[in-house]
Computed example of a mutant assay.
Amino acid sequence: MTSNKMRCVFELPADAQEDLVNRPEPKDMKMATEELRKLREDLSSARGENLQLREEGIRLRRQLSSAASAPGSAAADAAPADTTMYYVMAAVALVIGVIVGKLVM
């Protein structure tokens, strides 16, 4: 048996050499990590605020619907006054229409 030794030379590809040259320094990595942490905290607080606003909107809608359906509430009392106003306006329009119709003929 014979023993042979092979000599190998490892060369990095050109793009790998550029990556090694452009590798960020530890200081830059620390700043990027800190900024990422801050952005994640901001995102978390924004999501919490969004959830809180949605719950408040649902609560206000429920209060509004319960206030409108309750007897003796301001919203329930306002509805008959509005319909009464429509009846009065319709009667006035009818009277004016009859008067104008008599004058034109």
Results as ranks from 00 to 15, higher is better:
residue 89 M to K: 14
residue 72 G to K: 04
residue 21 V to W: 12
residue 89 M to D: 15
residue 16 A to M: 12
residue 28 D to P: 03
residue 80 P to E: 00
residue 13 P to K: 07
residue 102 K to L: 11
residue 16 A to N: 04
residue 105 M to H: 15
residue 25 E to I: 02
residue 26 P to L: 05
residue 66 S to C: 01
residue 54 R to N: 12
residue 21 V to I: 11
residue 1 M to R: 03
residue 11 E to L: 12
residue 62 R to V: 01
residue 74 A to L: 10
residue 38 K to S: 03
residue 28 D to I: 02
residue 14 A to L: 13
residue 75 A to P: 02
residue 1 M to Q: 10
residue 98 V to C: 15
residue 66 S to I: 00
residue 88 V to Y: 15
residue 80 P to V: 01
residue 49 E to L: 05
residue 9 V to C: 08
residue 99 I to A: 15
residue 87 Y to N: 13
residue 38 K to Q: 04
residue 16 A to Y: 07
residue 61 R to C: 05
residue 82 D to S: 14
residue 51 L to Y: 04
residue 4 N to Y: 06
residue 15 D to S: 11
residue 77 D to W: 03
residue 102 K to R: 06
residue 75 A to R: 04
residue 28 D to M: 04
residue 40 R to E: 11
residue 96 I to K: 05
residue 41 E to R: 04
residue 64 L to C: 09
residue 54 R to V: 07
residue 22 N to Q: 06
residue 22 N to I: 00
residue 42 D to R: 02
residue 90 A to H: 11
residue 55 E to K: 04
residue 85 M to G: 14
residue 64 L to N: 09
residue 48 G to D: 09
residue 49 E to I: 00
residue 74 A to F: 09
residue 83 T to H: 14
residue 69 S to G: 08
residue 12 L to I: 05
residue 100 V to S: 15
residue 5 K to R: 09
residue 100 V to L: 15
residue 69 S to D: 05
residue 104 V to W: 14
residue 74 A to I: 06
residue 16 A to H: 04
residue 2 T to M: 03
residue 34 E to Q: 08
residue 16 A to V: 10
residue 60 L to P: 05
residue 19 D to C: 12
residue 80 P to A: 01
residue 102 K to P: 04
residue 87 Y to G: 12
residue 99 I to D: 00
residue 83 T to V: 12
residue 65 S to N: 07
residue 12 L to C: 10
residue 89 M to W: 11
residue 56 E to A: 13
residue 80 P to D: 00
residue 20 L to N: 05
residue 52 Q to F: 09
residue 100 V to Q: 12
residue 98 V to R: 15
residue 36 L to P: 01
residue 35 E to S: 02
residue 88 V to K: 13
residue 3 S to A: 08
residue 87 Y to T: 09
residue 95 V to M: 12
residue 74 A to T: 07
residue 74 A to W: 06
residue 43 L to S: 08
residue 26 P to M: 03
residue 92 V to G: 02
residue 34 E to Y: 01
residue 11 E to I: 08
residue 3 S to M: 06
residue 93 A to C: 08
residue 102 K to F: 09
residue 47 R to S: 08
residue 74 A to S: 11
residue 101 G to T: 10
residue 105 M to Q: 15
residue 105 M to A: 15
residue 88 V to L: 14
residue 46 A to F: 04
residue 40 R to I: 03
residue 90 A to M: 14
residue 64 L to P: 05
residue 94 L to F: 06
residue 7 R to I: 06
residue 44 S to K: 10
residue 92 V to R: 11
residue 37 R to W: 08
residue 100 V to Y: 13
residue 94 L to P: 00
residue 85 M to N: 13
residue 31 M to T: 07
residue 57 G to N: 03
